[in-house]
Amino acid sequence: MDELLLHEDPRSGNCYKIRLTAHLLGLPLQRLQYDILQGETRTTEFLSKVNPSGCIPVLQVGDHFLPESNAACWFLGENTALIPDDSFDRANMLRWMFFEQSAHEPNIATLRFWLHFVGENNLSTQQKSQIMTKRIAGDEALKAMDRHLTGREWFVGDAISLADIALYAYTHVAEAGGFRLQDYDQVCAWLRRIEDLPNYVPMD
Protein backbone atom coordinates (compact mmCIF):
# COMPACT_ATOMS: atom_id res chain seq x y z
CA MET A 1 0.00 0.00 0.00
CA ASP A 2 1.18 3.53 -0.77
CA GLU A 3 2.16 5.79 2.12
CA LEU A 4 -0.86 6.97 4.10
CA LEU A 5 -1.13 10.58 5.27
CA LEU A 6 -4.12 11.84 7.25
CA HIS A 7 -4.93 15.54 6.88
CA GLU A 8 -6.76 16.18 10.14
CA ASP A 9 -7.78 18.31 13.06
CA PRO A 10 -7.14 15.96 16.02
CA ARG A 11 -10.22 17.30 17.84
CA SER A 12 -12.47 15.92 15.11
CA GLY A 13 -14.20 12.59 15.61
CA ASN A 14 -14.41 12.16 11.85
CA CYS A 15 -10.63 12.40 11.68
CA TYR A 16 -10.21 10.16 14.71
CA LYS A 17 -12.24 7.29 13.24
CA ILE A 18 -9.70 7.00 10.39
CA ARG A 19 -6.81 6.98 12.84
CA LEU A 20 -8.56 4.37 15.01
CA THR A 21 -9.21 2.17 11.97
CA ALA A 22 -5.56 2.34 10.96
CA HIS A 23 -4.36 1.53 14.48
CA LEU A 24 -6.69 -1.44 14.86
CA LEU A 25 -5.34 -2.79 11.58
CA GLY A 26 -1.72 -2.05 12.44
CA LEU A 27 -1.30 0.28 9.46
CA PRO A 28 1.31 3.07 9.61
CA LEU A 29 -0.38 6.44 9.27
CA GLN A 30 1.34 9.80 9.02
CA ARG A 31 -0.57 12.83 10.29
CA LEU A 32 -0.67 16.45 9.14
CA GLN A 33 -2.68 18.65 11.48
CA TYR A 34 -4.77 21.75 10.79
CA ASP A 35 -6.74 24.06 13.08
CA ILE A 36 -10.17 24.47 11.54
CA LEU A 37 -11.05 27.22 14.02
CA GLN A 38 -8.17 29.26 12.60
CA GLY A 39 -9.29 28.68 9.01
CA GLU A 40 -6.29 26.54 8.11
CA THR A 41 -8.36 24.35 5.76
CA ARG A 42 -9.60 27.42 3.87
CA THR A 43 -6.25 28.57 2.54
CA THR A 44 -5.56 28.72 -1.18
CA GLU A 45 -2.95 25.98 -0.82
CA PHE A 46 -5.29 23.59 1.00
CA LEU A 47 -8.18 24.22 -1.38
CA SER A 48 -6.02 23.71 -4.45
CA LYS A 49 -3.94 20.75 -3.29
CA VAL A 50 -5.93 18.80 -0.67
CA ASN A 51 -9.69 19.35 -0.84
CA PRO A 52 -11.51 22.09 -2.77
CA SER A 53 -14.43 21.87 -0.32
CA GLY A 54 -12.16 22.98 2.53
CA CYS A 55 -13.17 20.04 4.72
CA ILE A 56 -11.23 17.46 6.66
CA PRO A 57 -10.50 14.64 7.13
CA VAL A 58 -8.76 13.78 3.90
CA LEU A 59 -6.83 10.54 3.60
CA GLN A 60 -3.93 10.93 1.20
CA VAL A 61 -2.86 7.65 -0.39
CA GLY A 62 0.32 8.33 -2.30
CA ASP A 63 -0.72 11.04 -4.76
CA HIS A 64 -4.46 10.42 -4.34
CA PHE A 65 -6.73 12.34 -1.95
CA LEU A 66 -9.83 10.75 -0.41
CA PRO A 67 -12.20 12.99 1.57
CA GLU A 68 -15.13 11.75 3.68
CA SER A 69 -14.30 9.82 6.84
CA ASN A 70 -16.38 6.71 6.23
CA ALA A 71 -15.06 6.35 2.68
CA ALA A 72 -11.52 6.51 4.07
CA CYS A 73 -12.35 3.90 6.72
CA TRP A 74 -13.77 1.63 4.01
CA PHE A 75 -10.60 2.03 1.94
CA LEU A 76 -8.44 1.01 4.90
CA GLY A 77 -10.76 -1.78 5.99
CA GLU A 78 -11.32 -3.47 2.64
CA ASN A 79 -10.31 -7.14 2.65
CA THR A 80 -9.91 -7.14 6.44
CA ALA A 81 -12.01 -8.47 9.30
CA LEU A 82 -13.45 -4.97 9.84
CA ILE A 83 -15.73 -5.50 6.82
CA PRO A 84 -17.91 -8.63 7.10
CA ASP A 85 -17.73 -11.34 4.46
CA ASP A 86 -21.49 -11.90 4.45
CA SER A 87 -23.28 -9.62 1.97
CA PHE A 88 -26.21 -8.88 4.30
CA ASP A 89 -23.86 -8.06 7.16
CA ARG A 90 -21.90 -5.71 4.88
CA ALA A 91 -25.12 -3.94 3.92
CA ASN A 92 -26.14 -3.75 7.58
CA MET A 93 -22.75 -2.29 8.43
CA LEU A 94 -23.28 0.39 5.80
CA ARG A 95 -26.74 1.05 7.22
CA TRP A 96 -25.19 1.98 10.58
CA MET A 97 -22.47 4.04 8.93
CA PHE A 98 -25.17 5.98 7.06
CA PHE A 99 -27.10 6.33 10.34
CA GLU A 100 -23.97 7.77 11.94
CA GLN A 101 -23.69 10.48 9.30
CA SER A 102 -27.41 11.28 9.04
CA ALA A 103 -28.88 10.90 12.55
CA HIS A 104 -25.93 10.79 14.94
CA GLU A 105 -23.06 13.04 13.84
CA PRO A 106 -25.16 16.09 12.81
CA ASN A 107 -26.56 16.26 16.34
CA ILE A 108 -24.03 14.81 18.79
CA ALA A 109 -20.90 16.04 17.03
CA THR A 110 -22.38 19.45 16.27
CA LEU A 111 -23.36 20.10 19.89
CA ARG A 112 -19.93 18.98 21.06
CA PHE A 113 -18.30 21.42 18.64
CA TRP A 114 -20.62 24.29 19.47
CA LEU A 115 -20.59 23.93 23.25
CA HIS A 116 -17.09 22.58 23.93
CA PHE A 117 -14.98 24.38 21.33
CA VAL A 118 -16.92 27.44 20.16
CA GLY A 119 -18.78 28.22 23.40
CA GLU A 120 -22.50 28.86 23.74
CA ASN A 121 -22.00 32.60 24.19
CA ASN A 122 -20.28 32.75 20.81
CA LEU A 123 -23.04 30.97 18.90
CA SER A 124 -25.35 32.79 16.53
CA THR A 125 -29.00 33.24 17.41
CA GLN A 126 -29.89 30.60 14.83
CA GLN A 127 -27.42 28.11 16.30
CA LYS A 128 -28.70 28.71 19.83
CA SER A 129 -32.25 28.06 18.63
CA GLN A 130 -31.17 24.63 17.34
CA ILE A 131 -29.57 23.37 20.56
CA MET A 132 -32.68 21.74 22.04
CA THR A 133 -33.72 20.18 18.73
CA LYS A 134 -30.27 18.69 18.26
CA ARG A 135 -30.17 17.45 21.84
CA ILE A 136 -33.49 15.64 21.41
CA ALA A 137 -32.38 14.15 18.08
CA GLY A 138 -29.02 13.12 19.54
CA ASP A 139 -30.70 11.38 22.45
CA GLU A 140 -32.97 9.56 20.00
CA ALA A 141 -29.88 8.32 18.16
CA LEU A 142 -28.33 7.10 21.42
CA LYS A 143 -31.59 5.37 22.36
CA ALA A 144 -31.64 3.59 18.99
CA MET A 145 -28.06 2.44 19.55
CA ASP A 146 -28.84 1.27 23.08
CA ARG A 147 -31.84 -0.75 21.90
CA HIS A 148 -29.87 -2.35 19.10
CA LEU A 149 -27.02 -3.35 21.40
CA THR A 150 -29.32 -5.16 23.82
CA GLY A 151 -28.31 -8.81 23.65
CA ARG A 152 -25.36 -8.22 21.32
CA GLU A 153 -21.77 -7.04 21.70
CA TRP A 154 -21.28 -5.36 18.33
CA PHE A 155 -23.48 -3.55 15.85
CA VAL A 156 -23.12 -6.16 13.12
CA GLY A 157 -22.37 -9.86 13.54
CA ASP A 158 -20.09 -11.24 16.21
CA ALA A 159 -17.09 -8.93 15.87
CA ILE A 160 -16.19 -5.29 15.59
CA SER A 161 -16.75 -3.72 12.17
CA LEU A 162 -16.46 -0.29 10.62
CA ALA A 163 -19.97 0.40 11.91
CA ASP A 164 -18.68 0.28 15.48
CA ILE A 165 -15.70 2.49 14.68
CA ALA A 166 -17.85 5.08 12.90
CA LEU A 167 -20.30 5.29 15.80
CA TYR A 168 -17.67 5.15 18.53
CA ALA A 169 -15.84 8.28 17.40
CA TYR A 170 -18.40 10.85 18.53
CA THR A 171 -20.34 8.69 20.98
CA HIS A 172 -17.47 8.33 23.43
CA VAL A 173 -17.10 12.13 23.67
CA ALA A 174 -20.83 12.91 23.61
CA GLU A 175 -20.79 14.24 27.17
CA ALA A 176 -18.83 17.26 25.88
CA GLY A 177 -22.02 18.12 24.00
CA GLY A 178 -24.19 17.79 27.09
CA PHE A 179 -25.39 14.21 26.60
CA ARG A 180 -25.66 11.81 29.56
CA LEU A 181 -23.99 8.58 28.50
CA GLN A 182 -24.72 7.00 31.88
CA ASP A 183 -28.37 6.81 30.78
CA TYR A 184 -27.40 4.24 28.14
CA ASP A 185 -26.10 1.06 29.79
CA GLN A 186 -25.66 -0.95 26.61
CA VAL A 187 -23.82 1.87 24.89
CA CYS A 188 -21.47 2.28 27.86
CA ALA A 189 -20.65 -1.44 27.89
CA TRP A 190 -19.98 -1.32 24.14
CA LEU A 191 -17.66 1.67 24.56
CA ARG A 192 -15.64 -0.29 27.12
CA ARG A 193 -15.37 -3.27 24.75
CA ILE A 194 -13.86 -1.07 22.07
CA GLU A 195 -11.44 0.53 24.51
CA ASP A 196 -10.25 -2.93 25.58
CA LEU A 197 -9.31 -3.95 22.03
CA PRO A 198 -5.66 -4.59 21.14
CA ASN A 199 -4.15 -1.63 19.26
CA TYR A 200 -6.89 0.72 20.52
CA VAL A 201 -5.72 4.33 20.48
CA PRO A 202 -7.53 7.18 22.27
CA MET A 203 -8.49 10.48 20.71
CA ASP A 204 -5.85 13.17 21.26
Rank of each mutant, 00 (worst) to 15 (best):
E3Y: 13
L4A: 08
L5R: 08
L6V: 03
H7Q: 12
E8H: 10
S12D: 01
G13A: 12
C15V: 04
C15D: 08
C15W: 11
R19M: 06
R19W: 08
T21L: 04
A22F: 15
L25N: 11
L25A: 06
P28A: 10
R31D: 13
L32P: 01
Y34E: 11
Y34H: 07
I36V: 05
I36F: 02
L37N: 13
E40C: 04
T41Q: 00
T41R: 03
T41V: 09
T44Y: 10
E45K: 01
S53W: 02
C55N: 07
H64L: 14
F65Y: 09
E68H: 04
E68P: 10
S69N: 00
A72S: 09
C73L: 00
F75I: 14
T80H: 11
A81V: 05
L82C: 00
D85Y: 15
S87T: 08
S87G: 05
R90E: 00
A91H: 11
M93T: 01
R95L: 15
M97G: 03
F99L: 10
F99D: 07
S102L: 13
A103E: 13
H104E: 10
P106C: 11
N107R: 05
N107P: 08
I108T: 04
A109H: 04
A109I: 04
T110H: 01
R112W: 01
R112L: 14
F113G: 02
W114C: 06
W114S: 05
L115H: 10
V118S: 06
G119C: 04
G119D: 00
G119Y: 07
E120H: 05
N121P: 04
S124P: 07
Q126G: 03
Q126R: 15
Q126Y: 15
M132Q: 15
M132F: 04
M132R: 15
K134D: 11
I136K: 12
D139F: 14
D139S: 14
E140M: 15
K143T: 14
K143A: 12
R147G: 00
H148G: 12
H148V: 00
H148L: 05
T150Y: 15
T150V: 10
T150P: 08
G151F: 15
F155V: 04
D158V: 13
A159S: 13
A159Y: 14
I160P: 02
I160E: 10
I160S: 01
S161D: 06
L162H: 08
D164A: 00
I165V: 08
A166R: 03
L167H: 03
L167Q: 04
A169C: 01
T171H: 07
V173F: 01
A174S: 02
A174Q: 03
E175V: 02
A176F: 11
G177I: 03
G178M: 06
Q182N: 07
D185P: 11
D185V: 13
D185H: 15
C188R: 06
C188A: 06
C188N: 05
A189E: 08
A189Y: 05
L191E: 11
R193Q: 09
R193L: 06
R193F: 00
I194T: 05
L197H: 11
N199M: 06
P202S: 08
M203A: 15
D204R: 07
D204Y: 02
